[in-house]
């Protein structure tokens, strides 16, 4: 009888890890996290990168993902880390992967991993929300009402059922542009990452609650950055900076 043990493969070890920042733009903002995972795995194969695999019956490529933006939301700052079996120049990895991914999934930065506390560095996100056909004055009013509120409880359906939580507290900075840009009123927010993270949708639900803001067209949301939060200026920094040190 044939053996049922996992095949005796020589699994090549990871000799280099690369951290990558990528964008999800335009129509591809409708891709889900799983859609991106499949696209990235195939792009790595097309690009011919020496990706490392786990051992066992069904080997998986060594890729880890930092918390990704919700489906339907665009992003300029998504992060993944890949393990390679032979070293590559990060700049070349960036170019090769960008060419292999479809337009709209664009690789913006790549660095060799030198530090280990990457996930902790993703302290906050900077979001931009565009409201087509909304009056900037109305948006500014809603912004002020939200800002003045001590807390705004919203509901969201999660894997563990309907949850109620405060959407106000993690929002450390909120700004409504005085004028329309491209036919849209614009809101920008910096939101601290907490355990049940407050998403742009939750902020929109809160604005509806405190100021009856009902956009006639679904707003378009973009994550502009995620990284360490400067407690003085509320600026969101570059989480790859510590890896760039020589």
């Amino acid at each position: 009888m044939a053996s049922r043990r996992p095949p005796d493969r020589d699994v090549a070890p990871v000799v280099q890890r690369i951290r990558i920042r990528h964008a999800r733009r335009g129509r591809l903002r409708f891709s889900s996290h799983r859609d991106f995972q499949r696209a990235l795995e195939r792009a790595i194969r097309r690009a011919g990168l020496p990706i490392a695999f786990s051992a066992g019956f069904s080997p998986h490529p060594k890729i880890s993902y930092a918390g990704s933006a919700p489906t339907g939301v665009a992003s300029e700052a998504e992060y993944v880390e890949i393990g390679l079996t032979s070293p590559r120049d990060p700049g070349q990895v960036q170019v090769a992967l960008d060419a292999a991914l479809p337009p709209g999934l664009d690789v913006l930065d790549a660095v060799e991993v030198r530090t280990s506390d990457f996930a902790q560095r993703l302290e906050a996100s900077w979001w931009r929300i565009e409201f087509p056909e909304v009056d900037p004055v109305a948006l500014a009013g809603a912004r002020d009402a939200f800002w003045a509120a001590g807390s705004v409880e919203v509901e969201r359906r999660t894997k563990s059922g309907l949850r109620r939580f405060d959407a106000r507290e993690p929002v450390v900075w909120l700004d409504a542009h005085p004028e329309q840009v491209g036919g849209c009123a614009i809101l920008e927010a910096v939101v601290r990452h907490v355990t049940l993270s407050v998403r742009p949708d939750d902020v929109l639900a809160a604005l509806r609650q405190v100021a009856d803001l009902e956009p006639p067209v679904p707003p378009r949301v973009t994550r502009l950055a995620q990284g360490p939060l400067d407690p003085a200026t509320y600026a969101v920094g570059d989480p790859l900076a510590p890896d760039r040190r020589d």
Binding site: G26, R27, L28, F30, S31, S32, D35, A39, R42, A43, R46, T71, G72, A100, L101, P102, P103, G104, P218
Partner: peptide, 13 residues
């Protein structure tokens, strides 16, 4: 507002 919107956007490799 629809299920699996990615199926309608194209943009495949």
């Amino acid at each position: 507002h629809v299920a699996k919107p990615i199926q309608y956007v194209g943009g495949e490799v």
